[in-house]
Computed example of a mutant assay.
Amino acid sequence: MRADLPARRPLAKHGAVLEAVSRACRTAAGDTRAMDIASAPPRVADARAAAALVADLGIGPLERAAVLYLDPEWRFLGRADFAGSADSVAPPLRTVVGEALRLGASALVLAHGHPSGTIAPSAADLAYTRLLGRVAAAVDLRLVDHLIVAGGRIASLRDDGWM
């Protein structure tokens, strides 16, 4: 596997994560009924639902990023992971968009971990978010949110007014 390509996680390999997202989505909607995840991928309706899919990014000494790919109804299609250094990670734009097109995605959620423990976005985080948003829009994709994961907490750039 080439080092510059993201690790692909097929939907079927996300069993525990999908169950957590399904539970978070149902809880947010006040629905406690069982949901068949295999036949109905969970809808990532907000930052809380997306957070369940990326909580693992806050663990470890290096910044890591993930892009969640969503269909037109914001149902989860897949996730691509990217490794960075101790203080930065910037998924290649071409790779992010190429995977979105391959999956037939309509929307993206970017997330990354801050090993420093702070959930405040850096200037580089904000610049990359703006750039990815412009590139995605050029091919009719919507960047829904950018989440920062650190110290067991998650910040949503959209909810915090940065997007």
Rank of each mutant, 00 (worst) to 15 (best):
T95P: 00
A29G: 08
A127K: 10
A86C: 03
L108M: 08
R43L: 03
A51F: 04
L93N: 07
A137R: 10
R79S: 14
S106E: 14
L108H: 04
T129F: 07
A127D: 13
R8W: 14
D4Y: 10
P121N: 03
D87W: 01
A66L: 01
Y69L: 12
A137G: 07
A105Q: 05
H112R: 15
L110F: 03
V97H: 02
D71I: 05
R43P: 01
D31L: 11
A50Q: 01
A80N: 13
A90R: 11
A123Q: 09
D4N: 03
A49H: 00
R79K: 15
A38L: 13
L62F: 08
H146N: 06
L103T: 04
D125V: 00
L62K: 08
G60N: 05
R94N: 06
Y128W: 14
L77W: 08
C25K: 06
V67L: 07
V54I: 13
A50R: 04
L131W: 00
H114K: 14
F76H: 12
I59E: 15
S88C: 01
A40E: 06
A38S: 12
Y128K: 04
P10N: 13
D71C: 05
Y69G: 03
R142D: 06
A45H: 11
E99C: 09
M35H: 10
L57Q: 13
L93A: 15
G151C: 09
R94T: 13
I148R: 00
L101A: 07
L70V: 00
A7Q: 10
A20L: 00
P42C: 13
S106R: 15
P61F: 02
L141Y: 05
L18T: 12
E63I: 03
A28I: 04
A51W: 05
G152Q: 02
E63F: 06
L141C: 06
A49L: 03
A52R: 05
L132Q: 02
V67E: 02
F76S: 06
D87R: 11
L11V: 09
V109A: 01
V139Q: 12
D87G: 14
H114C: 09
A127H: 06
S85N: 06
P91F: 02
A50G: 12
A136F: 10
A90W: 01
L70I: 09
D125F: 04
A138S: 15
I59N: 13
A124T: 12
S88K: 03
R130Q: 11
S122R: 14
V135T: 15
P91R: 04
V97Y: 07
R94K: 07
V97C: 06
A34R: 09
A138W: 02
L68C: 10
I119V: 15
A45F: 11
D36H: 11
A12R: 14
I37S: 06
